[in-house]
Amino acid sequence: MDDRPDRFVHETGRHRVALLETQGITKKFGGLTAVDHVSLKLADAELRCIIGPNGCGKTTLFNLITGHYKPSGGRILFQGRDITGQAVHRISRMGIGRKFQVPGVFDELTVYENIRVPFFSGQRQPMLMFGRMDAAAHDEIMANLAGIDLASKAGEPASNLSHGQRQWLEIGMVLASRPRLMLLDEPTAGMTVAETRKTARLIRRISAQTGISILVIEHDIGFIREIGGHITVMYKGAIFREGSYRQIQEDPAVREIYLGRRR
């Protein structure tokens, strides 16, 4: 894994390692071009938001990165390696974790088991049928649950959780799989203002403490302001603008297509 030279790219004025890079990635559904030559570079430990109106191709871009869709053109590099068109579980194993728009928690499993599933993914231990949990693994899972404020719910089925708690649980699940890159698809959809703020703080804390690169699709402007960092605006499948929150907010063209229409 570490036999390749690191790739340095020029990014917002600093030299950083590009963890993820899409090169002219394109996806067509029949006559519709959902993602149109998107070239995106995400540095190591970077926290970035992607915004854009509905149907602008944000989720399709995620589906291309995770291998759910095969691109019609272009390449995707992860840690310098070409992962274009690889199987979903292979890409996931390389260290790309994803939180879905609709909470993808396992309803029939307990909150604890929900963390346990991704915890054993990757190369942690061979999946022997008679394997057992060691104490260290248990402590790590409980620490994960404490981080998302769900330790007291460990024994309850995930179906008992509130909407916000389910979103946090899924963030905890993605985190438990020890990704290098987290893709979060609208993590605050349907949340109250207080829950949204808490989620933003949670994501910022994860970014600062773990150094995991995080790519967030969001609609909520309050959330994006709270997150800070670099913002990519997508429009009609292509990258429209990139910049800081202030630059994006003050850009009249962005206001026109996106912010302006939001009250």
Binding site: H89, F106, E113, F120, S121, M129, R132
Partner: peptide
């Protein structure tokens, strides 16, 4: 076992389990 938990997860939501690399 952990294996059993994965099996239950596959039953509950196969796509999601696949996204975790299983």
């Amino acid at each position: 076992s952990p294996f059993g938990t994965i099996v239950a997860a596959v039953r509950d939501n196969e796509d999601r389990a696949e996204f975790f690399g299983y």
